[in-house]
């Protein structure tokens, strides 16, 4: 059984799979799901920084995709369509989270969650969390999800030039942050 993210065995593209799934082809949708899961899941993780929540967002995104695949006309790339759905799911989730009172996490839970995230994630948190949301979305969609600027623009509902400038502005901020932490990290490594 292929793992999520494995390339399809044939040259069949996800676009063709989507069209077949639209007509009710279960196997095509299953292959589409395997192919596009990484993009959907990583985008969720980049926003919420919580693996469990990323799972739930990804699953809800796919549930909505199942219900609306019949309406997918192929005007945009499949990944772009999925990301557009996912952004609505994320908005719903964040809204639901904001309405709920914070849970009282006990110390063990805090420690367990801290251990769940290795140092690489902390760096990502530092790098991405400090960015304004629109810049973070632009850089994640283009660098992690791998969308071309035009497709990222469609997913975000902005112009291509806006995505380009947001990506560049995000890079400027990230390079500045990177240069700030670099000397400290080098000193740490030297000791």
């Amino acid at each position: 059984m292929p793992a999520p993210g494995d390339k399809p065995d044939t040259m069949e593209s996800v676009e063709i799979l989507a069209q077949a799934a639209r007509k009710g082809d279960r196997r095509a949708f299953e292959r589409l799901a395997r192919e596009c899961q990484p993009a959907v899941w990583r985008y969720a993780l980049s926003v919420v920084h919580d693996q469990e929540l990323a799972d739930e967002i990804a699953q809800e995104t796919w549930a909505r995709a199942v219900r609306s695949i019949k309406r997918f006309r192929g005007d945009s790339a499949v990944t772009t369509w999925l990301i557009a759905i996912e952004r609505r799911v994320i908005a719903d989730v964040l809204e639901a989270l904001r309405k709920r009172p914070p849970l009282k996490a006990d110390d063990d839970q805090v420690v367990a969650e801290a251990e769940e995230f290795p140092s690489a994630s902390v760096e990502i948190g530092v790098l991405l969390n400090d960015l304004p949301a629109e810049m973070r979305d632009a850089i994640v969609l283009t660098q992690v999800v791998g969308l071309p600027y035009e497709e990222a623009a469609t997913a975000l509902g902005v112009k291509t030039g806006t995505v380009k400038s947001r990506v560049f502005r995000a890079r400027e901020l990230l390079v500045d942050a990177y240069r700030e932490v670099l000397p400290a990290r080098e000193a740490e490594e030297a000791t």
Binding site: E30, L128, Q143, L174
Partner: peptide, 30 residues
């Protein structure tokens, strides 16, 4: 050069093992 390293860091940082949600997705389909 720094921006290239950062792009790579972001990709690596989010390149976790992806959970296989396929069974649950296909249950939704069914």
């Amino acid at each position: 050069d720094a921006s290239e390293r950062i792009d790579r860091s972001i990709r690596i940082g989010l390149a976790r093992e992806i959970p296989d949600l396929t069974p649950r997705i296909m249950a939704e389909w069914d």
